[in-house]
Structures are given as C-alpha cells and as structure tokens.
Design a protein around this nucleic acid. Structure first.
Lengths: 154, 154
DNA sequence: CGAGAATAGCTCACTGAGTGAGGTAAATTG
DNA sequence: CAATTTACCTCACTCAGTGAGCTATTCTCG
C-alpha cells in the first residue's frame, strides 16, 4: 500500500473517516441529481441550475444569469444556453430587471417547483426525518460543523 | 412567496435547515473539483474518476472500468474514454485481471496520487483539523448521521 | 461436456453541451 | 459626457458523452 501521503496521526484518523463519509454523501447527492436528470429528460447541468434557482427563491436571493453562472462554476455563455433550455421547457421565466436595464431576473415556474418537489421531496423528507430524531443540541453541533466544512472548502 | 410545497412543521424546520447546509457543502465540494480540473487541465469527469479511484485504493476495493462507470453514473463507453484520457496523461494504468480474463484492474500512478494530494490535501487537512476539534462522542454522532444521510439518499 | 446466455469491455459514428471570441446595451466613473 | 465597466448575449467550433453494436471470456445447466 501507499504510505506517507497522509500522516498516520491517530487523533486525526477518526476525523478523516468522518470527512470521507461526508464526501460519500456529497457523491450520492450528485448521483441523485444525475438520476433525476435521466428520468425527466433534462440534463445534469439543467437540474443543478434548477436546484440552485429554487434555493435562491427559498433564501430570497435575486437570481440572475450571472449569479447562476457563478453557482454552477460555468461560463456565462453556457449558462445562457442552460436558461434557454429551461425556458423552452417552461421551467423558468426571464424578467427584465427594472432597477438595472442590463440585468435579468430568473423566475422559476410552478411546474418546475412541482417537478423538483416530486423527485427531491421524498428524498429531502427522509433526510429531514432522520435529522429531526437528533436532539436540538446535536442538530446545533451539526449546523456549526457543516458551516465550518463550508468555510474549509471555500 | 410560494406556500404549501413544504409542510410548515416547526419541528422539521430546524432539521431541514441542517439538510440544506449539507447540500451546500456538497455543492462546494463539487465546485472544488471543477476548480481542480481547470487548474490541472483535466476535465471535471476525469477528476471525479481520479478521486473515486483513489478512494477505492484507500478502501481496498478492486477498481474496474465497470465499477468506475457505476460510481460516476455514466455509460461504460464514456468511462472507457475517461480511462483513455487518464491513461494518456499517465495517471492510471490498465492491468488485465488474472482471475477474470474479461476484467481490467485500474491502478492509479504515483503521479496521480501526488497531484490529488497537492490540491485536495490542504483542503482535507483543513476539514479534518476542524472535525478533530469535536469530542469523540460528537464525532460518533456525525458518523452515524452521515451514514443515515447516505442511506436516505441511496 | 458443450450450446446458449450473461458479463466485461471496447470501437465507431454522431449529437449537442460547453468554450473562446467577440458583440450590444445599460450603468458607472472621472 | 467620453471612457470604462458590467451584464448578457450570439456565433462558430470542439470534444465529452450516447446509442448501436462488436469481441472475448465466463457462467449455466441439460
């Protein structure tokens, strides 16, 4: 086996195991998106975009093509194409911003919300139900830890 | 705002917030992979494949093209192409299996390990260090919860 | 055993998602 | 109020991923 790439610190070994499991969960979420894409005939990127748009709405963030491009880690041209596809499928609507004539606001349609909920709803419900079984203190620990992970990655 | 798509159960609201943060972390991990791909000149899929291959080695799992295809949620042909690219870049080696003449074992090269470690090492170190600050009991809670999340998704 | 089915991986031809180059219109700045 | 920046878009092209279909090896069971 390959030795030496990771310090064999026993203190950190347990923590590393936790991190690996986190990555495993991230992978599975990504695979679920792929599966959703396949069943709906959409493309992986389109689904990822839709999810982000729904998140933006939930968080009260103004979603624009530029913002979306950043969220997806893609160029603005590719994002334009994504929006075109979603628009053609009736999942999103372009609304010209009144405050800034250059900017466009992206509004997800009810059909998109329903579509997303139909697939991700049960999944989210299972995850939420499982999480709700933990004590408030434990949930607070999770939140703090997840925030720390976010910062450690970004 | 859109009401009714999610039952406004206050018990679950906190848990849902935790789940959303988990998704946020998953998104950031995916973006990190994209960034790694851009800086190394590899493609996102190639990096994802490499990560899975390194994970397989770590876990002692025998990595084959078929196994990799499943891990990436792609067709076997696309996976063949990925392996070709990684092989051409000197990151992976094809080894014909002795027990099954149809099968091929995929062996990651030292250069790939080093490359992966160079980029993901600091990131993993930050995540691990943060996680190690939690008590063993809390870490155990995390592990159980993450396993539960994995099962809830899959 | 040996014919038929299943499995693992591959090549070929094609499609279309994503990129680079470059353009337009609106806002900001000095 | 020209010059610059910002936000988004079109066009032409490339190559990653797919479907169809192949070969070689292993498994199944009469």
């Amino acid at each position: 086996m390959r030795e030496g790439v990771m310090p064999a610190d026993p203190e950190r070994a347990a923590a590393l195991e936790v991190v690996h499991r986190l990555r495993e969960v991230a992978l599975k979420l990504e695979l679920a998106i792929g599966e959703f894409a396949r069943t709906t005939g959409l493309h992986g990127t389109d689904v990822r975009a839709l999810v982000r748009l729904l998140d933006a709405e939930r968080a009260g963030v103004d979603a624009t093509p530029g913002w979306l491009a950043q969220q997806l880690g893609m160029t603005s041209q590719a994002t334009t194409a994504v929006i075109h596809r979603l628009e053609a499928a009736g999942h999103v609507e372009r609304l010209r911003s009144r405050s800034d004539g250059r900017s466009t606001h992206l509004q997800v349609s009810d059909s998109a919300v329903e579509l997303g909920w139909h697939f991700f709803g049960p999944l989210l419900n299972r995850m939420t139900a499982e999480t709700a079984q933990l004590s408030p203190t434990e949930q607070e620990t999770l939140k703090r830890w997840l925030t720390a992970m976010s910062e450690a990655i970004g």
